[in-house]
Design a protein around this nucleic acid. Structure first.
Lengths: 212, 212
DNA sequence: CACACGGTAGGTCGGTAGCCCTATGGTGTC
DNA sequence: GACACCATAGGGCTACCGACCTACCGTGTG
């Protein structure tokens, strides 16, 4: 699990991003900050794995905060203005990454994983390759080994279909087969019953997978 | 359920906000757009209840897109620059609301509900009052009538504690009482078992309520 | 071709979840 | 003070769930 603190002065951006990142299974948002001072405070209190920092913030800027933290924790700078000047500033302040706000969310998640793994993300040349290497949300071992049919059952479970007979009807198979699949799912996810399996399925985001 | 289409040229903002709004029980994001042209297309295809539009977008601006849609669907303009000029532009283009990107997420959600209910949000004087009236995420009738103890049990359920004896131990009550509470919960949430109750609890956001 | 694996199906059995009912003490309200 | 509501607890019963086992067939892989 990667603990992240996010700093951005636009509340909407801050709260949305926190919410979105938090819903990624292997990332947890442990603090948010609206300015550099709060960022320093949150970082010292929460000891996160990675920082996500907007440059443009009132009072104490992101750059100033990073300088104060002196690279103790890998920080990714996320900014609207991706000019060379800003990039150099961020690099000088000790950031390990420099990303535009036009970055897709999955790429940002990959960047967070890369930073947590100690990678450097400043080099524009190799950025795509580094992100690619951290794209897989490394599902919790067992979850990765779920078969297509098992995922399908989990999806229905996460959508509120819990009864064996209803699941059997939905998949056009016997109740016996449903119970067999469920038993295999319990084994792989290390859970005991369908309530826990449903919770886990939602945590893994299976509840909004395509019906196909 | 309120269907929303969001337009913003910053991918990170767009995707984060979509994710965050989607996780609100009574709001569903049915489309996203990176520019005005996509916004018009998504709106015509999806027929959403409310539009959330950033002004500053490449190619076709949010204002131009709103003018083209001619107020067919209530639109809330969300912008970084909240000057009088922008406000007048938004109003002239037919927007029913004009909010800063410094708006907290719950306020934006309230604004979306207000817009869906046909309210005007342009008047700065009455804005706070209007938002207040739409603050309550109008939980699905039954959910609102849950007692504190029932919510506590649902919270644990949503966090993966499903067995009756474990719940009883956690709450220092008998298994009988747990089963009674659960029966009342099933009744109020209109579900049949703890798997469905867990799914519903997570949908209501109870899984990250404070342990208090 | 043998083998592994996934999807399918069945049997048995014990435990428990869910349903119906009653009951009591506390708390708050009119 | 009567009443409603909540949290607590129990009895009894049935149906279902989950655990463990075997089995067959098709597909793909070595």
């Amino acid at each position: 699990m990667i603990d992240v603190v996010i700093a951005d002065d636009h509340t909407l951006m801050l709260e949305s991003l926190a919410e979105a990142l938090d819903s990624i299974p292997d990332i947890r948002v442990v603090g948010t900050a609206a300015n550099g001072a709060e960022l320093v405070e949150q970082t010292r209190q929460q000891r996160p794995t990675v920082l996500l920092v907007d440059i443009e913030m009132p009072q104490v800027s992101g750059i100033a905060a990073l300088r104060e933290l002196a690279g103790a924790i890998p920080a990714i700078v996320v900014t609207m203005h991706t000019g060379e000047a800003e990039r150099r500033q961020a690099e000088a302040a000790g950031a390990v990454g420099f990303l535009s706000k036009a970055t897709p969310l999955p790429d940002l998640a990959a960047a967070v994983r890369a930073a947590a793994a100690g990678e450097q993300l400043l080099d524009t040349e190799t950025l795509a390759e580094v992100l690619d290497r951290h794209r897989a949300p490394q599902l919790d071992a067992g979850a990765a080994s779920l078969t297509a049919r098992e995922r399908e059952i989990l999806r229905h479970l996460a959508q509120g279909v819990s009864a064996t007979d209803e699941l059997a009807d939905l998949l056009f198979i016997s109740q016996k087969t449903v119970k067999n699949h469920l038993a295999n799912i319990y084994d792989k996810l290390a859970v005991a019953d369908r309530a826990q399996a449903a919770v886990e399925a939602i945590r893994l985001g299976l509840h909004r997978d395509p019906p196909d």
